[in-house]
Amino acid sequence: MEMAFVTRRRRNLLQTDGWKRFRKNKLALFGLIVLLLMVGMAVFAPLIAPHDPYESIKSEAGLILKNKSPADSGTLLGTDSLGRDVFSRVLYAARISMSVGLVAVGISTTVGILLGSLAGYFRGWVDTFIMRLVDVVYCFPVLFLVIIISTVLKPSIYNVMLVIGLCNWTGTARFVRGEILRVRELDFVKASESLGAKDSRIIIQHILPNVMAPILVEATLQMARAILTEASLSYLGVGVQMPTASWGNMLFGANNLSTLTLRPWQWVPPGLCILMAVLSINFLGDGLRDAFDARQKK
């Protein structure tokens, strides 16, 4: 999304006030750099990973190196309870955790824009119905709703994406509706309407471009929440299932006091990865909001 934007209007973007503001924001730049590093880690995981993330490492005598510390196993971050290399698993988990986040946000943003536009543009009973639905969904804590539905459905990575996506659209829908109610009263929309433009044309051509920047910001911040939600689900055992590694389910394996105390190398690295990924996305989203979201300007 971002890339297309950059190539299409590169000269404009780099010269906008928004970009200048963004560049001055040290936290946002830090977030962007860390995030790019982590995406790189995920994309090039097969090249970087020293071991197969699904195979146990064996010693020369043929023994599986279970629960070995970095020093004992000669690996960077030690091995897990099945003797698999923690570092390689963290790299492969980055792919899973980030793609779950990306797809979930794609779903929730699409649903949010769709329902929000319908409610804001047509008003009347459509609006009432959709907004009551928002109120209802809003009463269920997102994490709780996601947990319940994932329990009921067969646990799989696709269901995790779908459920997180379908439970997170209320914020976007509310916001898009509000913006559309505001924008549709503006003169240029009235003008277009009086020239006989169709509803769909007015929404797509005139209204959505005006709300795109804040939607992107919201999507970025939602991505952070989606990654956190996936981690929590997998930690509870109803998210991404073993043997596929996700950062969250790597902590699921460490959910007892002996692992927690004696083998910190098994749970600290994936935990820190979640923290760094979510933190850098939050920094980035906040920076984007300050830089590009016109409503925030004073």
């Binding site: 936290l27 956190l228 979640i274 923290l275 933190l279 939050n282």
Partner: peptide, 10 residues
């Protein structure tokens, strides 16, 4: 920022 970003279980 760290507070909103850290997984509660971690």
């Amino acid at each position: 920022f760290v507070g909103i970003s850290i997984p509660a279980f971690f």
